[in-house]
Simulated assay, not measured.
Amino acid sequence: MLPHRLLGPTATGRAVADALVLHADRGAREANPYYWHRAQEGTARLLKEIQSYGDPQLSAATAELLDDPGSRGAWQRLGDLASAAVGASEDGTAALAGAAWHVVTKSRLGYHVGEGYDRELRPDPEWRDWTARPPAATETEPLAHIVIPFRDRSEERTRARNLVACLAALGDQTVPRDRYHVTVVESDSAPRWRETVLKYADEWLFAFSDRPFNKCWTVNCGVAHARRRAPYLCVLDGDALVDRDFVRRNTERFLRPGTGGFMCFRDLSYLDPAASAAAVRQRCTDGQAAPDPDALRWFAVQRAPGLCVWVTREVFQSVNGMDERFEGWGREDIDLVLRLQLATAFDQYDDRMLHLHHPSSAQLKDGQTVNSHLPLLSWAPTKPIGRLERFTG
């Protein structure tokens, strides 16, 4: 049975509104340019079906949402009108409904906007002055090692602000702070953020590179050169905003027999700028255990391979870490996940993972990422991984 017949008019109306937000909102493209590019044929087909249907009110609501895709009111109005149309004439709207569900189920992008979302909210301008939470000095072996690759040389400093929020959230956990070690590896042509990082993290490492950002090599450097070793590794992007139980919940998952690694989420919630400000305020300033989804707006990247991967140190070393040939955005995370799935029992959970907004650096050429020429599953290094001196000449 087709989704619009199985789930009914209300769900179908929302599918129409969601699909058109994905079509028009730049934030959907920033969440994942590759998936967004692949979805455009489907969203264009939906627009044609709405035009062919010939309902003036539905057409006007569509134009309103396309003009302002961030408006919750415009999204709600279009969803309500589409629901009413489907409810009144299921057969007459079959093509329109089918086009909407094709986008929602095939594009690998979804949409959420809460009733309490405030699109006017702005980031805390005082993020540099947040109270430092330096971990207590200890040399005991931790249970988990969290490695965060990082670079920010922009004027906006958005990624640096996100990193501080990420580190502040990691400093507010339900397990003792000495049970996990946080290493930030800054890879750049010059060190810029050491003092800021060490307000919150156990360790800052610098990996010189004047080339496009290489997440894989940067992560490998953090694993190879950390001051303290741990049996469990977490590769975490600096734009992640984790909840208070993040470390406890995920380290305990390794107690499940046979577990060598896992992803703790299925769909990545890519927040827009206002929602990022709300989430950071709730988690880092107000001290909530997790942000309230009702106050947030996000694009869901379905089955995203990146942002956060947990793996035993033994398994990470057995697959030679991340593939250091990848530079720039795209495919490096899926390559690691595929190799882990071949190497060990690899699980996937369904936690909510929040990605804070930043201007996208991703680029596509003819619809492909800059790394599309690199064969997946082909990493076979001939030298030790994570060499800090790799780009020093």
Rank of each mutant, 00 (worst) to 15 (best):
M1I: 13
R5D: 10
A24G: 10
D25H: 14
R26E: 14
G27T: 03
N32W: 15
P33H: 07
W36V: 01
H37P: 00
L46N: 01
I50P: 02
Q51G: 09
P56A: 08
T62A: 07
L66N: 03
S83E: 13
A88C: 06
L96S: 03
A99C: 07
A100G: 06
T105D: 15
T105R: 15
H112K: 01
G116D: 04
R119N: 08
E120A: 15
L121H: 03
R122Q: 14
E126D: 14
W127D: 01
D129R: 13
R133Y: 10
A136C: 08
T138I: 11
T140L: 11
E141A: 12
H145F: 03
I148P: 02
D152W: 14
D152Q: 10
T158H: 08
L167D: 03
A168P: 02
A169F: 13
V175Y: 06
R177P: 02
D178Q: 12
R179E: 12
T183F: 13
V184K: 01
V185Y: 05
E186V: 10
D188K: 04
S189K: 12
R192K: 05
W193C: 02
T196G: 00
E203A: 09
W204D: 00
D210R: 08
D210Q: 05
R211M: 14
P212T: 07
K215F: 15
T218G: 04
N220I: 14
R228T: 06
L233D: 04
D239W: 06
V242W: 11
P257H: 12
P257D: 09
T259Q: 01
T259G: 03
Y270F: 15
Y270T: 07
L271S: 06
L271A: 08
L271V: 13
D272R: 07
D272H: 07
D272L: 08
A274F: 11
A278W: 08
V280S: 03
Q282C: 07
D286S: 09
G287M: 11
Q288M: 15
R297S: 11
Q302A: 10
R303G: 01
P305V: 10
V309G: 02
V309S: 01
V311A: 08
V315Q: 07
N320T: 04
G321F: 06
M322T: 02
F326P: 03
G328D: 03
I334C: 06
I334N: 02
L338V: 00
Q341A: 05
A343M: 07
Q348M: 13
Q348H: 08
M353K: 01
H357D: 12
S360N: 11
Q363F: 12
K365Y: 12
V370I: 14
V370D: 06
S372C: 13
H373D: 09
L374G: 00
P375K: 06
W379K: 01
T382G: 12
K383Q: 14
K383A: 14
P384I: 03
E389Q: 12
